[in-house]
Simulated scan of single mutants.
Amino acid sequence: MMTSLFSIFDPTSSLFSLPFNWISTFLGITFLPYSYWASGPRLIFLWSKITSTLHKEFKTILGPSNTGGSFIFTSLFSFILFNNFLGLLPYIFTSSSHLTMTLTLALPLWVSFILFGWLNHTQHMFSHLVPQGTPWALMPFMVLIETISNIIRPGTLAIRLAANMIAGHLLLTLLGNMGPFIPESLLPILIFSQILLLLLESAVAIIQSYVFAILSSLYASEVN
């Protein structure tokens, strides 16, 4: 029984007293063997083109000296994208709509960037706290503002992804629950609106995966 509107998003489903909602997070691994086919289908070819394009873009952002880092962010994009799309399927838990998942991805990345920057490029990190051309009187305030903006970065990354995913799912759920209570003449309109929302959520799943990965790579480029 649903106790509240948001209880459908709670990871509480269990089997033999073992939680299994988070198993959906690892379903993307089942797609990996197809990438090793000698002559893959068109879907695998399209996916290879997408990942190679993303790899080049991340490589441009990080610089030529950090080519290995682009693979990390391409993998991050793929992981979030798989989870976002799997959550659109019926009866599959959307792990990317929970802060438990998104903050687990964002916080370690941010901490590693900050530690690397302050340990290896200390003067460069200090220079980021005061933008060029700042008057002397405003320097303490700029340092405070830049420090706060750096601290809240993992939170904004995590909340942006979780909020965008849960908002669309919540809207789909609300419209779907109206089905038994509306006249039959309005059912085609409801179904059509659900299809449009599903297409919108598919676009959001791609965009939010890209935004999360590209912002993470931009944060990484600042500490080099």
Rank of each mutant, 00 (worst) to 15 (best):
T25A: 14
I166F: 01
I145E: 05
A220I: 02
Y34T: 07
A220S: 09
L89P: 00
N84R: 09
S14M: 05
N164W: 06
T60F: 03
S202R: 05
T94R: 08
Q208A: 01
F212H: 00
L129Q: 10
F77S: 08
P41N: 15
Y34D: 07
L170C: 05
I29R: 03
S24K: 06
Y219I: 13
L103R: 05
Q132M: 08
S48G: 14
Q123F: 05
P154I: 12
F113D: 10
A137K: 10
S78K: 04
N66K: 15
L186I: 06
I182S: 01
L43C: 09
L99Q: 08
L215K: 14
H128D: 05
P188E: 02
L5P: 02
I44F: 05
P135H: 03
M178C: 11
L196A: 00
N150L: 13
N150F: 06
L119Q: 05
T102Y: 02
F26I: 13
L129S: 08
H121I: 09
I152H: 02
T156N: 13
S149R: 14
I92M: 08
S193P: 00
M2P: 02
P135L: 04
L138T: 01
V211P: 00
P154R: 13
W22H: 14
K59R: 08
S13K: 14
I92H: 00
N164M: 12
E57V: 15
L89R: 01
M165P: 01
I72A: 10
T30V: 14
L174E: 00
L199E: 00
F79W: 15
L119K: 10
P180M: 11
I214R: 15
A162V: 12
S216P: 04
A162Q: 11
L175C: 04
S149M: 12
P108H: 08
S193G: 07
S96C: 15
M125C: 10
L15T: 07
S52L: 10
L215I: 12
L129D: 03
I207H: 02
R153L: 14
Y91P: 00
F71H: 12
G28T: 10
N164K: 11
F6S: 06
I151M: 10
A163F: 12
F31M: 12
I189V: 08
F73P: 06
L200R: 05
F116W: 05
Q208Y: 09
M1P: 04
T147Y: 04
T12I: 15
M2G: 00
G87S: 10
L172H: 04
S95Y: 03
S217M: 14
V204L: 07
S209L: 04
M125E: 07
F93H: 09
T147R: 03
Y210M: 13
S35D: 07
T173E: 10
H98I: 03
S216W: 01
S75Q: 05
P188K: 07
I206C: 06
S39Q: 13
L171F: 02
L175W: 01
I114R: 11
T53Q: 11
S202Q: 11
I92G: 01
P135I: 09
L171W: 01
E146Q: 15
I114G: 01
S35W: 14
N84V: 07
F16R: 11
T173S: 13
